[in-house]
Design a binder for these strands. Sequence first.
DNA 1: CGTTAGCACTCTACGCGTGAGAGTGCCAAA
DNA 2: TTTGGCACTCTCACGCGTAGAGTGCTAACG
Lengths: 367, 367
Amino acid sequence: MTDERIARERARGGRPAVELTDRQRSVLRAVVEDYVLTAVPVGSKSLVSRYGLGVSPATVRSAMAELEALGLLSHPHTSAGRVPSDLGYRLYVESLMREAELDTTDRLMIRHQFSQVQLTSNEWLRLAASILAGSTRSAAVVTPARSRRARFGHVQLVALADGTRLLVLVLADGNVSQRRLDRYALERELPDEALDQAALDAAAALLNTELAGLSAPQVRRRAAKLPALAAHIGQVVSGQLEEADAVVVEEVFTDGIVNVLEQPEFAEGTKLRPILEVIQRSDFLEQLVPVLTRRGGVHVIIGHENTNDAMHEVSLVFAPYGAPDRALGLLGVLGPTRMRYPRAIPTVRYISTLMNELINSEYGEPQ
Amino acid sequence: MTDERIARERARGGRPAVELTDRQRSVLRAVVEDYVLTAVPVGSKSLVSRYGLGVSPATVRSAMAELEALGLLSHPHTSAGRVPSDLGYRLYVESLMREAELDTTDRLMIRHQFSQVQLTSNEWLRLAASILAGSTRSAAVVTPARSRRARFGHVQLVALADGTRLLVLVLADGNVSQRRLDRYALERELPDEALDQAALDAAAALLNTELAGLSAPQVRRRAAKLPALAAHIGQVVSGQLEEADAVVVEEVFTDGIVNVLEQPEFAEGTKLRPILEVIQRSDFLEQLVPVLTRRGGVHVIIGHENTNDAMHEVSLVFAPYGAPDRALGLLGVLGPTRMRYPRAIPTVRYISTLMNELINSEYGEPQ
DNA sequence: CGTTAGCACTCTACGCGTGAGAGTGCCAAA
DNA sequence: TTTGGCACTCTCACGCGTAGAGTGCTAACG
């Protein structure tokens, strides 16, 4: 568990303390890349034959032994090949990986897929998850962009033909929340009030000028001082804002869970179970929110670096998206620690910047 | 006892042609129930010892052989126990199963869970899926209630502070669809038009009187004859209606996929893969839509009765919910053919009636 | 002094044969 | 019609031996 702390420390500070020789570095790189590709523990002989390191297997063996002593590789059993440890992957990601930006073709393909679809926001997130999953062959997770603090933007009240009233609340960050008002409660609490469209419009207009930009508790206080109908609606609105505040990660769009199922390490259903559970409850995202909020860019969390026990055999590659002070969403992929990091990282990065662009163009420039 | 059962069969109408003796019936019932419980092919000896049928194993064996000849049981291999065939399950479900209504405790528990939550519609469906999954220990699927033909109800246009305009369309069935209007497109196409809140309100009012109750093509035609701004918005609205028409099953809420993963028949991940894929694409629901629309109540689809190849080893128990001519949604569970039908069927039935109640009270009574 | 070849050793995966156990089908007796 | 008996079949778990891949160590080499 000390290792775990060290690893996380490293993740933060950038440089690992370990100094490696060039040979060790290239052996580690080769081991990681071969293992990622084949999922088979890699031995010295097959390594030199496949990667032409220009030295003999024996030399590679001694390098491997050194790497193992450093905790970067491990041994399933005495006479099996080596497998990278979480720390090994960490080092690989930090300084060994030849991380390319995405090809132009990949970029175009992704951009093209995005352009295909009308941007109703949910469809859009679903699409992002699907592209991410397809492009990385991992499970993808995308959350909607939400402000950390919900603020009042605009309210509309609509009297429907069947007698219900609909409340549409636009938050300051552009998200929309709607609610059907209970007709009986309304008539019970406001028996003397006219509840036709004109009265509703008047109340909405009042609320729109009075509440602009306010947070949930502010709305509650201010609304209390307004006339009966507006006050009532104000309380409902405040409740909506509170709800929006309460959910850190409310709704997640996932895709490509089958991709993870395909991986040999999860071929056995029971292995996947706890992970699936965590994904679907989506609490694993909670831990990411503070990290990603504090510092943008792509974050990689490998195996045991994950605080969640169920996730000790998976890695996450995540990035935030959205306008910094307006609304923040998360997107990323989840796969076995044996993940194609050099593919996943640039993909997540690219899609997050793309979503930034799209969101900002959609919201218009800030005034 | 016997007469009573026969009478009940008759009352139901539409019996499978096969006539079974009482013994065959009770053997088939015992085989199904034992296999559902244990997932192990059941042999004659263990059957009499566990179910005290009052006859010897040899007798049971001959009954089994007869049932096999009728295609109701099958044999994994010569010297293994019997397993119900799809047809066997079908017969069981139709006339052998002692289907109880749900216990009062179960009902109360379900009702209680529903009452816990504020009814924002998505949360509500998610909850329904979760309850369904938990209560049946299967995978649950719930779709939102949609009209088969989307009709215009009410439109609101909101000018936001940042310069975008928001269009909120309430369909006649009460569903809401919102869209952000592209500000630049708007200004390009309508250069001479004032686009402030007053102009938007006027346009909305016009559309609300002109378009009430119309379908997509009708909206398109009528809108063409309106003044510029209203005409433009009308086209957008028509597009929204078309979209709503196009998607048969747009968004599905699933839960409890892990429950299926837990079943021994799907312990191997590869088995589950195609099924997972189908669920997530959710096209398997399309086949259900016509059936469930034509005739309400709970429908059971067993193994090969499923037209979709990937679903040959799973059963569905589904029911529609919603007001008949207003909006129709689907809900149900998916599990191995070896499913606890006597539990799943009443649960699906109960939850669907519960959702009916809730929906109807929410929409108010029809005028 | 780092690198390499050689060698003994270790561990897994796989194929094979065997025996126990569960279940069947058939037949003759009750 | 039901039952007991019996021969037969098939799977599954176990043990065993072998092939193969890989390691670690040591001694020789440049």
